[in-house]
Design a protein around this nucleic acid. Sequence first.
RNA 1: GACCUGAUAGCUCAGAUGGUAGAGCAUUACACUUUUAAUGUAAGGGUCCUGGGUUCGAAUCCCAGUCAGGUCACCA
Length: 495
Amino acid sequence: MLYLSEQQIIRRKKLDQLKTLGIDPYPSEEYIITTTVRKIKDEFIEKKEISIAGRLMRLRILGKASFGEIKDHTGSIQIYLKKNHLLLDKIEKDKVYDIFIKKLLDIGDIIGIQGFLFKTKMKEMTIYVQKFTLLSKSIRPLPQVKQDNKKKIYDEFTNVEQRYRMRYVDLIVNDHIKNTFVKRTQIIQEIRNFLNQKEYLEVETPILQSIPGGAIARPFMTYHNALGIPLYLRIANELYLKRLIVGGFHGVYEFSKNFRNEGMDRVHNPEFTVLELYVAYKDYYWMMNFIERFMEQIFKKFQEKNSIPFHSPIPRIPILDSIQKYTGFDIKNMEKKELRNICRKLSIEENEKMRKDKLIENIFEEKCKMHYVNPTFIIDYPLYMSPLTKKHRVKQNLSERFELIVNGQEIANAYSELNDPIDQLNRLKTQIESQEKNRNHDENFYLDKDFIRALEFGMPPTAGVGIGIDRLVMLLTKKDSIQEVLFFPQMRPEK
RNA sequence: GACCUGAUAGCUCAGAUGGUAGAGCAUUACACUUUUAAUGUAAGGGUCCUGGGUUCGAAUCCCAGUCAGGUCACCA
């Protein structure tokens, strides 16, 4: 059943009245614009004739003249409408104002206007409208957000549920929202430019995979009818990019949409974007230097005032040193029993089933990570935490891996890629067996034998990195929810 | 998945102890030819998230559910 509010009914009636007057509320013809609001304001020339289009955001009727505000993709500007000075289609000149402007026009309507520029008594740049065109009638009232002359906002459209469900409305009425998303795109473009300059190749790899590899996570499942097989939305693209390195590419990267069928919260959305980059003949030290320069450039260009600075060199702290610093415990070479003891002393959750790597990871997460507000590389993770990473060249039981932590959050995760096929097969098997959540699947579920085959042909030593784009954007735009940097965050269906 | 908080007009919100549902903006009507959170006067607008229960009487109390936000768990 269709429920219409009073205001919706009134606007629908206006549609009929418009048609009676011979005005098409949704015309097809191209509307020629000669400029934009930003250009008008930047290069204001009194009496200049212009034509622009946009959404009517405000209308103040004062008798035989009115002021309105029109908003295009570049900003808002005041318009001035005067009785008997307006033309509109076939309507008699003296009726345009009294009938169309005063009765049938609504805030939210998309209009085209032709006229000339002038400044009011109050020195406000204004368009003196001479010809008016209705381009699209709005039959649903917009939230009314108001701003006073000190830029203070009243009645802001703030209900997060409605803002996310109706992002289009959010974008119309909350000006600052658009900036976040424009910035997101600019950040991605900057990254792309940076990587292209290095002559790394942007590639595309399968999103539908028959074996969801490259990470341990619950995948979304689907089914291919023609092939008669289950398929999974990728949880990572790592194994495919490495295949391309095997194939002879020197450096490849992809902005990978990944999908994980797990919990959602302020920093997790079921689909999210990771930049993955793999470069042949490099190691994780090289990658650290690379990320240092790379992130320095991104931060320099995009970080907001009063946010965290990023200046190389970034400190490089072995994870075990970090744990010693913040807990006082030297856990080097410790057995599981001792680690569990330490967890209990630090009141960190632990149990019999947890592996050593899990216990160490928990200690770091609970006691250390939050201390790294300024950018820090945490390096040399325990080997068993990192099944796709090379053994450390000198340090026993450690891996050649680093994470970049900023503001207590992991921004990048990188390592010297394991390219020993036999070691890789064993490590993956061990990893898969130990994962509790894989109980419902046989080992082939996560074991990508074709990937092992590729390694058997020989992969050059390679450095790889993954950068969480959503979280990077959050950091650079100072948003504390991932939903604020995604146009359409995942929501339960309405009703 | 667990716990906490919330849902009232198109929007932002108020509605102690249960007793005819309120404001501002928006809408409608009238007035107003340089206003800018326009102004003045008047009017209309509600499935008080849904379903049960208690009660003479529920927006309000109780139970169940839906949706959202937060915290935790899992994870990036």
